[in-house]
Computed example of a mutant assay.
Amino acid sequence: MNSPSIILASSSQTRKALMDRLHLAYHTVVPDIDESPQGENHADDLAKRLAFEKAKYISELHPDAIVIGSDQVAWREGAPDIFIGKPLTIEKAIRQLQANSNKIVYFSTALSVQQKSTGFEQTIIEHYKVKFRKLSQAEIERYVAIEQPLHCAGSFKCESLGISLFEEMIGQDQTTLMGMPMIKLCQILRDLKVLVP
């Protein structure tokens, strides 16, 4: 019996790089879903719904495949109902970092693994937080100019120069901050009899 194919339901280059770490044969298919909030009042709820819907959409098209969906929502301490999105422009990235300065920013990262033909579905949420140091305007502008973090929630790349913005990083698995909790993913894949490593 052939092993089921593995599909990453994502267009994210960061998530693809995380999957590449596992040395598994997989391919990516981009899910066509509406990612706007639908009345959720907590980042956890939005992230879980989006991860689930991404995996479900692709699972319907490829019922025998193991489909991996993931989504991340960022929010500042005390405001889990105010979602920090991708800035998309330099001006918005600068404003986000000004607002993040000297604050704790939380990341709710959801993972959904589904296989329609067997009825398997597991959707979980993991958390990570970073404490930003007090940032000067010059530091913010210099950082944004160098890294161009326009497609990153919170306007930084922790795996690159973004590390210089922090006072502290708090969490069990740094890949949760990067957008897909890999320790949990490996556990789920092993439950599905996928050899990792």
Score class of each variant (00 low, 15 high):
His127Met: 04
Ile170Lys: 00
Ile170Gln: 05
Pro181Ile: 07
Arg142Trp: 01
His27Tyr: 15
Glu60Gln: 12
Ala43Glu: 06
Thr176Val: 12
Glu126His: 07
Leu192Tyr: 02
Phe166Pro: 10
Ser36Arg: 15
Gly154His: 05
Thr175Met: 01
Leu192Thr: 00
Met169Ser: 09
Asp32Phe: 09
Phe132Gln: 03
Lys129Phe: 01
Leu50Asn: 03
Ile170Asp: 03
Arg133Lys: 15
Phe132Cys: 08
Ser155His: 02
Lys157Tyr: 11
Val130Lys: 01
Met182Lys: 00
Ala145Arg: 02
Leu61Arg: 12
Ile58His: 01
Ala55Val: 00
Glu77Phe: 05
Asn41Ala: 09
Leu8Pro: 04
Ala55Trp: 05
Ile140Tyr: 01
Ala17Ser: 15
Ile68Val: 12
Met178Pro: 03
Gly85His: 02
Thr109Val: 08
Asp20Glu: 15
Ser160Ala: 14
Lys116Ala: 04
Ser108Pro: 07
Leu135Val: 02
Glu53Met: 09
Ala99Ser: 14
Ile7Val: 14
Gln187Thr: 13
Ile124Val: 13
Val194Trp: 01
Glu35Leu: 04
Asp34Arg: 02
His62Pro: 04
Ile33Cys: 03
Val196Ile: 13
His23Cys: 10
Ile7Trp: 03
Phe156Cys: 03
Gly179Ala: 11
Glu91Tyr: 06
Glu121Pro: 01
Glu40Thr: 11
Thr118Ser: 15
Met1Tyr: 04
Tyr128Pro: 00
Glu121Ala: 14
Glu141Trp: 04
Asp64Met: 11
Glu60Pro: 00
Leu195Ala: 14
Arg133Met: 09
Trp75Pro: 01
Gly85Ile: 06
Asp71Asn: 05
Ala65Thr: 04
Gln98Glu: 14
Glu91Arg: 14
Ile104Gln: 10
Ile104Arg: 15
Lys103Gln: 15
Gln122Phe: 00
Val67Asp: 05
Ile183Gly: 00
Asp173Asn: 06
Cys158Ile: 15
Leu135Gln: 02
Lys86Ser: 10
Ile125Ala: 02
His151Gly: 07
Lys56Ile: 06
Glu168Asn: 14
Val29Gly: 00
Ile82His: 13
Ile104Ala: 10
Ser117Val: 08
Pro197Lys: 11
Gly78Val: 00
Thr89Pro: 14
Ser36Gly: 00
His42Asp: 15
Ala93Leu: 00
Ile170Thr: 13
Ile82Ser: 12
His127Lys: 11
Glu167Ser: 09
Ala145Met: 09
Gln38Tyr: 10
Met19Asn: 05
Glu126Met: 03
Ile84Thr: 05
Asn100Arg: 00
Val196Gly: 07
Cys158Leu: 12
Thr89Asp: 15
Glu35Thr: 13
Glu167Tyr: 05
Ala17Trp: 04
Leu88Ile: 02
His23Lys: 13
Lys16Met: 09
Pro80Tyr: 06
Ile90Pro: 03
His62Phe: 12
